[in-house]
Design a protein around this nucleic acid. Structure first.
Lengths: 147, 147
DNA sequence: CTCATTGCAAATGGTTTGCATTGGG
DNA sequence: CCCAATGCAAACCATTTGCAATGAG
């Protein structure tokens, strides 16, 4: 089995549909934000979204992020330096890779991880109800340009 | 192999030694904080430490936490609700379990995890240089009293 | 004695909220 | 039309910092 960083598979339209399914309205600002999110895969800080969309207020950016996180299409990531980034969920159940140098975020899925958790479950006091696995990597680009 | 949540194995004296090794001084306030840390294993918020030690200033609590984190004896954890807790590192390389209900923090070590990472490494674009694995569990106590 | 450490209060930075206004359906 | 969503600025909250006072070695 070949794992690799996968491309986004949630489209602009998918995201807007999810917002509607959530009982929320599709507004110009939300279109702008979603549009920005699908155009990139590296992950965003609210600050970055705010800078790129001067016509969307800071509060709206935060409110939309919360909306998307609650809908399960956006993931909140804690980087090694404790800073926060958000990245689009791209596949149903997955994990993230974070380059410790350039910060680029990838995603991977490996059923081995799930199997591992099942194995550990039987040996832990309590039931595993969720997990967070982030791999801190040095991406190919940064490996190449390592000084 | 039997895994279980392990008891702390870093003593009060160990921690003070580590502070000295770090080139820092042992002060009354640092003694108080370290004393509190070793007395419990659930993990702390800075706020909690501050409340329990009225004679230690807030800034000192934060400065000491940073000192200990940098020395590698205290781990910063991000809970499922994005709040932050600190827990004593208890074994060299390990992972944490966090009860999603009561918040109690446990620790486990499983070489299977390390082996898994090695396996994944060969299939990912980039080199794995670190990772964060947190298991969100429902601890035995909370399972028992589940309403 | 000297310099690291402390306490305090002020500053910071990211996120949220209150409220009047706007705009989608 | 109506109520959800927005923008703005003020509020918040955890954490950090400047600086004068303290204390460990």
């Amino acid at each position: 089995m070949r794992l690799s960083i996968m491309k986004a598979n949630l489209s602009y339209t998918d995201l807007l549909d999810l917002i509607e399914d959530n009982g929320s309205r599709i507004t110009g600002q939300r279109r702008d934000i979603v549009n920005l999110l699908v155009a990139r895969r590296e992950g965003f800080t609210p600050e970055e979204i705010n800078n790129e969309l001067p016509n969307v207020g800071r509060a709206t950016v935060y409110r939309t992020i919360k909306l998307l996180v609650n809908s399960g299409v956006l993931c909140k990531l804690t980087l090694p330096d404790s800073s926060i980034k958000y990245a689009l969920a791209q596949i149903s159940h997955h994990h993230h890779t974070v380059c410790v140098k350039c910060g680029i975020i990838g995603e991977f899925r490996d059923s081995t991880v799930e199997r591992l958790l099942k194995a550990i479950d039987s040996d832990i006091d309590g039931d595993i109800v969720g997990h967070r696995l982030e791999l801190h990597i040095l991406c190919p680009e940064c490996t190449r340009t390592r000084e």
